[in-house]
Design a protein around this nucleic acid. Structure first.
Lengths: 204, 204
DNA sequence: ATTGACAGATGACACCGTGTCATTTATAAT
DNA sequence: ATTATAAATGACACGGTGTCATCTGTCAAT
């Protein structure tokens, strides 16, 4: 998390720094990114950077979390829109993410992000939702899901379903970048997977 | 891939180097690991390292692939053992992996690996299996799977099923390290997920 | 207006790691 | 013995990191 001094900065200066960060994290993935480049681009002295953030990672996850928050809210809205139909919601969310990402001028940022999407990063993206039935994130989603169309016995099962759907979605998007799959194919794959999950793997 | 010069080395020297690598990659994750430490530990000059490997990543993935190969073979054997029942096979594979990992003196190596398991790494682990219906890796598995117990219409669906089962398995193991889940709980979670996949998410 | 105190800004610096390359050494072939 | 070729070696130039002593600006108290 950024230090208080960062929040004390005038908004414009915060934005300059963030833009410099986005530029650097678009150029190369996190592990190759250099603070030297960021401060040069932002026109601030090196020492200042450390006044605001712990280190590179701290800065990166701060930026990433802003995108993730946006996405989480979007998910909630889509769930509402589809009256709690989780399948439609994740499907739409996937399409939405693909389109949004393509639109961004920092397409590269997402490419670098998804290619190096590890569990550290996924945690930032899905937040604790991924880790506990008790998390607030999860509860908010759970309460919106229409379970009458689902084959669930209890809360634990619902938790796993949501987790699986979301991590499949992320996986498909990541694979898009790993092997250069066009959006249509990504959506097609994800749809196939959702249908498999819906109908079940086991023969009747 | 290692350069030919590495393979020309006497086996003992290869092993010394690999052990030094395992030690370093156990200490810290790939992105923090230093070649300086590896060569110091192995007692070889810095220049030699670059004679054998392109860089740190090259070296790391060489080591990783050895583990992955072992695991792929294990998977094939388990499929045979269970007469093509993919559910039993992945379930066993997961348990197997957990036990094997705990046994290793380089437990930390796997912790670092799984915590930073991104799509680059997953690709090394699952090989191309994850990326194409056409890959040899996939075909070998597919031919062993008993599809009569599965609710599949075509090869594409089977491909996705296998991919989903395997990436769920890896996800669960990774989460074990991210949030310190005991093996029993990991297996319980994975079992729950497999059952959900078997029976299908959608209410009848 | 002056002072003191303190948050923040600054950039030089010590440190560490990387990858290369000119040079040396070993090996093999004639 | 000579030459050619492959491999080994470690010094070096380069670039990045995080820190710290020092400087600057602000604001409350007198």
């Amino acid at each position: 998390m950024p230090r208080q001094t960062f929040y004390n900065l005038p908004i414009e200066k915060q934005e300059v720094l963030i833009e410099a960060g986005e530029k650097e994290f678009s150029r190369v993935p996190l592990f190759e990114a250099s603070i030297a480049n960021i401060v040069k681009e932002a026109g601030i002295p090196r020492g200042s950077f450390y006044q605001y953030f712990q280190d590179k990672e701290d800065f990166y996850f701060y930026i990433l979390n802003q995108y993730a928050d946006e996405k989480r809210k979007r998910f909630i809205r889509l769930l509402e829109k589809h009256d709690g139909n989780i399948f439609y919601a994740v499907s739409d969310l996937c399409e939405d993410l693909l389109i949004r990402i393509d639109r961004k001028n920092d397409k590269q940022f997402f490419k670098n992000m998804f290619l190096h999407l590890d569990f550290e990063t996924e945690r930032a993206f899905l937040s604790d939702m991924n880790y506990s039935v008790l998390s607030e994130q999860y509860k908010e989603v759970r309460d919106l899901v229409d379970t009458t169309i689902l084959n669930v016995k209890n809360d634990e099962e619902l938790f796993h379903m949501i987790q699986m759907l979301l991590s499949m979605m992320l996986g498909n998007i990541a694979r898009k970048y790993a092997v250069n799959i066009p959006n249509e194919k990504v959506l097609h794959n994800f749809t196939t997977q959702i249908n498999l999950m819906k109908k079940g793997f086991k023969a009747k």
